[in-house]
Amino acid sequence: MSSFTIQSRTSGSIHILELNGELDAHTASHLEDSLKSLIEEKQFNIVVNFSRLDYISSAGLGVFMAYIEDVRSLGGDIKLSNMSDKVYNVFDLLGFPTLYDILHTEEEAIVKFTI
């Protein structure tokens, strides 16, 4: 079965979700629950760190498709960082790099919120 965990931490006013394992149709609801909780807690400045994510399918991308505009309309953003080439390629095939802030490192993503 697909294995997937999320570690949550903060850096000042920024919330960081660190994804581990495989994000697919079986595990996407876990990420969705985490994003929903942050939005309910009015935490709209979110960085998702992909450094330990081995795999993503469109079901995983769908979670970002569903929530990014809500978060932006509330004055925040979901910025993505530390993707492996394989994971980045899936985002790239669908044209996401023009729609989302995808940064090399978590630090760059955090700094982006202050610009």
């Binding site: 469109s58 769908g62 498709m65 569903a66 929530y67 990014i68 505009e69 044209g95 996401f96 729609l99």
Partner: peptide, 12 residues
Amino acid sequence: DVAERVMLRKRG
């Protein structure tokens, strides 16, 4: 149209 789907909050 991925950009449109994102605007409409449509997943997948």
